[in-house]
């Protein structure tokens, strides 16, 4: 029986993703396009929010992936720390820029949506604030990877940063809720997605969410492949110098 850990072998990973990646990439394009086209062209306007409700098909999937990308990085970092599989560390590295972009999309679409609905681009609402903080954590993580030359040292240090960062990101989220309640009592601006959303919106939303998940998987696979190749190249060049 083949075990999941076989994919920790770079060669096996490359062989598998060689045929898997085009499939996932194609599926991600098809599903995302379906979800977004369905959401953009074939959903009714909300009676209260007008056409701005169509932003939900970008905003919610992006926000979902912004958080899930960090969770995936956390798991991959843990796997690296515990079992020292290089593919795992490189996958965490490959996921970070995608998470950063997802956070950016969530923040931007949120601002554009908030402007007509709440009358402001930005409010120091706890949800918004914790996303901005998540954005900073992504930046720090990527900057640390970029600053370190030795790949194994980089993998170790960023893994520790990811673990510590997760704890502090959760604390910050809790702090943001505490702080915002403390300053403006009862001013709850956040919409609660999913509570009273009609199926006319829910169905394309789920499609679009699956599409974003597939985009994320495809990009992480592609990025990991690139990182594996980059490491191999580094090793070859180093051997060349030694000879």
């Amino acid at each position: 029986m083949s075990s999941f850990w076989e994919y920790a072998n770079p060669r096996k990973f490359m062989r598998t993703t060689n045929w898997l990646l085009p499939l996932v990439a194609a599926a991600s394009v098809v599903v995302t396009a379906t979800g977004l086209i369905w959401g953009f062209f074939f959903t009714p306007d909300d009676f209260r929010q007008g056409s701005t409700v169509k932003i939900i098909f970008l905003h919610v999937p992006a926000a979902l992936m912004a958080i899930n990308a960090w969770i995936m990085m956390l798991v991959a970092s843990l796997v690296w720390v515990v079992r020292r599989h290089h593919v795992s560390a490189l996958a965490a590295k490959a996921a970070a820029p995608v998470g950063l972009v997802m956070t950016l999309i969530a923040l931007f679409t949120g601002a554009v949506w908030g402007q007509p609905m709440w009358g402001t681009w930005w409010a120091w609402d706890p949800r918004l604030t914790s996303f901005l903080i998540l954005f900073l954590f992504y930046l720090g993580y990527i900057a640390l990877w970029a600053a370190i030359d030795d790949p194994d040292t980089g993998a170790d240090l960023t893994a520790v940063l990811c673990l510590v960062g997760t704890v502090f990101a959760l604390l910050s989220r809790y702090a943001a809720f505490f702080w915002s309640q403390g300053l403006h009592q009862g001013a709850s601006l956040s919409l609660q997605p999913g509570t009273r959303v009609d199926w006319a919106y829910k169905a394309p939303l789920y499609v679009s969410m699956s599409g974003f998940v597939l985009i994320f998987v495809a990009l992480v696979l592609a990025g990991t492949r690139t990182e594996i190749r980059a490491r191999r190249m580094k090793a070859l060049v180093a051997r060349e110098r030694m000879a």
Binding site: L36, D45, G50, I55, L58, V112, Q115, G223
Partner: peptide, 26 residues
């Protein structure tokens, strides 16, 4: 899109551009 056309369109255009950007970079 009614009176929110610019908001909805800009949200879609910028988000797709960001996605395209990260895909192109990878």
């Amino acid at each position: 899109l009614g009176r929110y056309a610019s908001e909805v369109l800009s949200a879609y255009v910028v988000s797709l551009a960001l996605l395209a950007g990260v895909v192109a970079w990878y």
